[in-house]
Every structure is written in structure tokens, then in C-alpha cells.
Design a protein around this nucleic acid. Structure first.
Lengths: 225, 225, 225, 225
DNA sequence: GATGAATGAGCGTTCATTCAT
DNA sequence: AATGAATGAACGCTCATTCAT
């Protein structure tokens, strides 16, 4: 599986980095450590200085790869969506029935990643938890409209549209496929966070997986004529 | 309407402030200006220094009211949810039919606030746009679990539960009322942001109001047995 | 003499400072120490950090007074020219004969300040040496044309014009009074520097005062019809 | 003219460079680009990094030629004086009358270079403007006394002495020939800068050439017994 | 000889916060 | 109660420089 995964790895917009971190040993250490560190202390108090200390290097070296911590977060989330799309391909491969396809797609988008992926230097489980908590900070910013970031959300958009298309296969007249799918993705993220920190906002019992079940039902009922 | 509204005004958890800003002229200026300023430059680059300049006062004075900018944001969002709950009461008053009640509730939660509210020193339109963009930052933080903030999300939780109860009136067996309603609230916020900045993630045409229609249908279909 | 001198002290363009350093104890320490420090290590390697250390304070405190080291240098040179003009007034007071007046003026502009001035917290001798070595850096900069600096060289300009007028008293037809006087001022500065560091560029023997004599002769011969 | 000029080219003190930039293609690009760049952004914000970018090379490569940006500036000014001395030879060649020689010499030192010199990779017009603005920074430094820089000002000194000798031919008893000539050179530089940026310090109207005329008269009157 | 990668050091700046008045 | 002055700490960033290839 190594080879295939390493192919995915490159599918990150160049505009997020100065030099692709996956092409050097230091770069990879930056990725690994930043995931650990953001998980630990949160993106807000995450700084290049702290990251530099944790990889036993210096800030200047990190600037060779990313021009700001914001760009680094974009890199990570972009990578995550690109990786998720890749997993989606596998999940849908050779599955014909649209209902089945949609069910599987939603399961993928709303369940926790549980197994690690061998052959990857990136810890996807930790990364997914970063995406849940911090990714909104990547777009909820005043810079979101800048041209150079136009391409950055492509991965996410693409994923939404891919699943949206399955919805349309089932009900070609449904008017809001993207709205529905992005609601599911963001919603699942939120519910997972609520389940852990603000349980009264959800009906998810920690441990069980009501989230996936709920969103599957919601989607199918919503798109039924 | 002045009197009634000013009653709402006090319904903010004390743990968010050192001294209630609504009890003094300076405090009110802090609220007004912070809303303007956060709207303008975003919460991340919003600082007490800049706020102090814009109210022609001094950082130290703001510390009399809020112990951090984070607490100030919590105050504003709490105020917002408390205000929203208040509006909900009005919307539902004397409406008996559960279907009708739910429809109205969702409309309230998913539509843009359009009219200002006279008698309020707080610009609710601007505030709602802050809540959309920045409120997730108020809870997506490592401090979220700290005891003293336990009560802070009460307003939001209460609102979710209030509407959740209407859901249960319609279908007492529905298992995930809170999950559904918080998905709607967060979803509507996101969609509104996407519509403006990342339109490919939504099917909302700017100007129209597909969002409200979509969520109403989604909710009713989802809770139908 | 105290009182009169303290009057001069305020004659510095406000655009050079954020808060007038002469109005507080810390501000005065900044002035004194910066003069010492620039003298010692040169303006190029002079930084706010080093200055802060030498006054046993921190950089942030210095920023209360000056927004950059460049502005601080402008403050010092402006102060110096304003002070020089003040000394000029005294030197010319009650002297009627134009020849005499010019001779005295040139002497003032070309001789080393030797006596300290009691009642001043600023060490004028050290300051004058800074002006000789570093002041050109205050105007030889890409910012020189910016509007906000328009008024900054007024002291220097005014001094040049004041002495230029004496030249015109002696020879009203002389076409280049300002050119002549600014040549003298800058020239005397250079020669004093050369005498110390690059003696082959001058004919000044260190210790003697050929510089003053030379410029006096030069001026009188040049303006004679 | 090529051959003769390329002879001049080598007349730069070795102590300024690690490897003579004129001996390689990259070295020449360094010279050309540094002149452009210093002109554009000023010496203070000129760095090896920016220079490296503009020659599409790398900082490390520049260090092969110059050990610091300060040394590079010294190289350029030294080259300039050496070049000026060379032009002086041509200007004085076959001119016998001392008065005439002095007049021509001063004209050379105080007028703007207008024509470019074919056969030179160095843009002398731009370089002369650098020397006017930045050269004082080359010697107004705390390092000026260091041994290895002792020889660096030889070109300038030599030029001053060469013209000083003409002064002595005319008036052998004149005591300050070097002082006079260095005053003229520095003065002309200053006046040219003032004319453009601080016109009230001069009587030079931009466009005309009062500077040359003024200094010629000044010199002749000053040295007349 | 030229380059790419990495680093150590330090600068300018801003922030949040405290203290005395 | 509000303010002015000062501070400690950290951040983002750039620079000059070195090393290995």
C-alpha cells in the first residue's frame, strides 16, 4: 500500500508551502511534530518557535518550508481532504448501487478514523482531530478571499461535489446536494467535538457511534422525494 | 420595546466579566466598539490595545470589565444566544400547533437578522455576523473544559434543548433532537459563510434564501417516522 | 543659565517622538544613555534592545517615546541644531559689525564644543561628535522626502539661512550664501573626522585648530567682490 | 577605449574582496546588480539575500567574493575613486597652465557624470549616485581605524593629493590644499543631494549647474595670496 | 567554483498585564 | 472608577554565516 499512499502525499496545493516539506527529512519532521504539537496545545498557542524547539531546530529553518503557521495549517487540512478523497475512491471502488455508495460515503465522512495507515509518516488520527477542531480557523479568516487561496479549498470542494453527485444519482431533482453534504461533514465534526466537550448539545454517547447513524438517516430521508 | 429588551440584556453569565459592562457608560462603549472592531479586522487581530484606542481610553480600563479578549468574545456570544432565545419566545408565543412552532423556530435560527432592534445599544446585525464567523473560536479552544466556563454555553444549550423539545412533541421517539438542532444552527452559520466566500460548497445563491427552506425540509423529513 | 537652557530644550519637532522624552525621568535616561551608547558602538550597531539594557529597562518602554532608532537620531540632531542656533544668538548678541558677526558665527560652527553646559542633562560634547559622525545618516535615507519629515530639518535650514544673511549683509550680491555656509558646516564636520581617522585627507594637525582658521579665511575670500 | 578602461578596472585594493569579482561572470553580475539594487532600495536595506535573488543565485555564492556588504560598498567606492583618478589623468593630459589644470580638475570633481562609458560593465552614473549618498557610510563607521582598511581610502586620498599639488603649483605657500580639495569633493556631493531633497540648504537650482561654478570661484579666491 | 540546506543570533514589535496615582 | 506609565515575555521575521555536497 506504500506506493499508492505516497502518490497521494503530493496532492497538496503548492501555494501553501515555500518548499514541499515531504521532500526532505527536516520537512517531514516539521509535519509530524506540528501535528503532535497542535493537538497538544491548540493552534492558537502553537508557534513556530515552539515547533522549532520540539524538532530541535530553529525558526529560520521552518520558514524555508512555510511562510506562516496559517499556511502550515492550510497545508495540513488540504492534505487531509486530499487524503480523504483518496480513501473515498477506495471505499466506492466496485460498489455499483447508488444507495450503497452514498451510505458508504457518509460513513467515511462521519466516522472516526480508527486504524492508522502504515506507510505514512503522517499520523492521520491526530490529524483528523486537528481538522475537526482547527480547520475552520483555516477559512474563517479575513484572508479567505485572497486570490492565491482560491485553489486551496479545492480538495474540500471536490470532495463535497463528488458525494453530491451520488446524491443526484439517487434523486436528480434534489436541489441542494452540496449544502447537504457540507452540512454533514461540518456537522459530524461539530458533533464529535460536542460529544467530548459539550455533551448537552448532542445526543451522542461517547463511545457509541450515533453520529454516523444519525447522518445517514438524515441524508436519506432528506433526499427522498 | 425598550424596557423588555433591556431585561434580556442582563442575562449573561457573570463568569464572563469582571464588572458588567452594561452598567456603565464606558462598559457600553466597550461593547459597541468591540463589535465594530471585531467585524472590521477579525477576532484574531483584535486586541485590547486597538479597542482602547477606538474608545479613546486605555487598556487598563478594559481590564476592569473583561479579563481577556477571549472572555469578551464569550460575553458577546452568550449575549447573542440569550437574545436569540428571547426572540424565540416571542416567535412562539401563542402559536399552538407543534409543526408551526418548529417551522417558525427553524426560520428564526437559519435566517439572517435583517431589521435592527431599536432600544438596544448593541448592533445585532453586526453581532450575528461575528457569531457566525468567530463563535466557533470561542469554544474550539483548549480551555473549553475549564470549570468556570462550564456555565458559559448554557444559553446555547438551552436554546438547542428548547427547540429539541418541539421536535419531541412532534415525534416523541426521535432519538437525536439536540444533534439535529445543533446541526441546523451550526450548518446555517456555515452555509451563510460559504455562500459569501466559498460558493462551490453550497447551493445557496447569494441574495435568495435557500438556506432556511433547505433546513426546514431537512428537519421535517428527518423527524418523520 | 539653567532657566534659559531649559527653554531651548523643548524646541524639537514633535514628529520625531511619540511622547516627549524630556517630560519624564525615564525619557531623560533614554536621551542620556542613547548618546553614550551611540558614541560608543556607532549608530549602525545601536539597537533599542541594547539601549534598554543600558537603562535597565525594556524595549517596550522605549517605544513609548520613539517609534524607531532612526526617529531617535532625528530627535538628537534636531535638538543639536536647535541648541546650536541658540548658542549662535548668544554669540552674536550685541555684536554690530557684520565682519565680526560672521567671524564669530563661523568660529561657532567650525570649532569643537569644549566646555560642557551646566544645567543640561544632555552631554553636548558627546552629542556633537554623534552629529559629526552619524547625522548624515539621518538624512541620507530613502525616507528623506516623506512629508512628515518636511519639518524635521527646519533647525538646520534655519541656522544656514541665519548665517547666510550675515554673508549678504557684507556682500549683498553674493549669489550662493546657503551653499557656502552649508559647505562650511558639513566641511568642518568632515575635517574633524578626517583629522582623527584619515589624516592624509586634511591638513589639520590634531590638537591645533586649523579648521576654524581655514574656513574663516575661505569664507571671507570667497565672498569678497 | 575598452582596453584602457579595463586596465583601470583592476585598481581596487585586494583587501576589499575575497575573490576579485571582475574575473568571473558571476562576479560581474554581482557588481552590476548590487549597483542597481543599492540605488533602488538604499544601502541600509540592501542585503546579500536580496542581491542573491536578483542575480538568481544564492547568498553563499556571494560570500565567495565579498565577506560582507560593507566590504562590497568599499569595493564600489574604491573602484569609483580609482576610476575618477583615471578620468582626471585624461582631463589634465597635455594641459600645461596650472590655472587651467585646476579649473578642469574641479570641474571634473563637482559636475555630474552625464555620459555613460562604453566598454564598462559598471554603470558609472548609478555608481556615482551611490557614492554621493552612501559612501560616507563606508568610512563613517567604527571600523574605520582597523588596519586592513588602512589602504582602502588610498584612491580617495591620492585623488585629493593629486589636485592638492596643482593648488600648490599655483600658490606654494597655501597651507591647506588637502583640506580645501576634500571640502570641495564632499561639498559637491552634499550640494547635489541637497539640491534634490533639501533645496533650502543650497542655492543650486535643479537643472542648472551652479555647483561647479561656485566651487571653482571658491577655490581660486581662497588660494589667492 | 557554485549551490542548497540549515542554523544561530538578534532585531523590531506587540501583547497582555501590573502598579501607582 | 479610570487612567497613565512601565514592564516581562514572547512572537514573527530576517540576517549573516557555515557546512556538506
Amino acid at each position: 500500500m506504500n506506493n499508492i499512499l505516497s502518490k497521494v502525499v503530493f496532492d497538496v496545493k503548492e501555494s501553501t508551502y515555500v518548499k514541499d516539506p515531504q521532500t526532505s527529512e527536516l520537512g517531514n519532521r516539521i509535519l509530524e511534530s506540528s501535528i503532535d504539537l497542535i493537538n497538544e496545545i491548540g493552534f492558537d498557542s502553537f508557534t513556530f518557535r515552539k515547533l522549532a524547539q520540539s524538532i530541535k531546530s530553529v525558526e529560520a529553518s521552518i520558514y524555508r518550508y512555510f511562510e506562516s503557521k496559517h499556511k502550515l495549517l492550510l497545508y495540513l487540512t488540504t492534505w487531509y481532504w486530499s487524503f480523504t478523497e483518496y480513501r473515498l475512491e477506495f471505499t466506492l471502488a466496485n460498489v455499483e448501487a447508488p444507495d450503497d455508495r452514498l451510505k458508504r460515503a457518509i460513513h467515511l465522512l462521519t466516522s472516526e478514523i480508527e486504524e492508522g495507515f502504515s506507510g505514512l509518516n503522517i499520523d492521520v488520527i491526530k490529524l483528523s482531530s486537528i481538522v475537526i477542531i482547527e480547520s475552520s480557523k483555516a477559512y474563517l479568516t479575513k484572508d479567505v478571499d485572497q486570490e492565491n487561496e482560491a485553489g486551496i479549498f479545492l480538495g474540500y470542494k471536490h470532495l463535497v461535489e463528488r458525494v453530491g453527485e451520488i446524491v443526484l444519482e439517487i434523486n436528480p431533482e434534489f436541489k441542494y446536494p452540496n449544502m447537504l453534504i457540507s452540512t454533514v461533514i461540518e456537522g459530524a465534526h461539530n458533533q464529535r467535538f460536542f460529544a467530548e466537550h459539550l455533551p448537552r448539545l448532542t445526543n451522542q454517547v461517547k463511545g457509541e457511534d450515533a453520529i454516523c447513524e444519525f447522518y445517514q438517516k438524515m441524508v436519506f430521508k432528506t433526499i427522498t422525494k
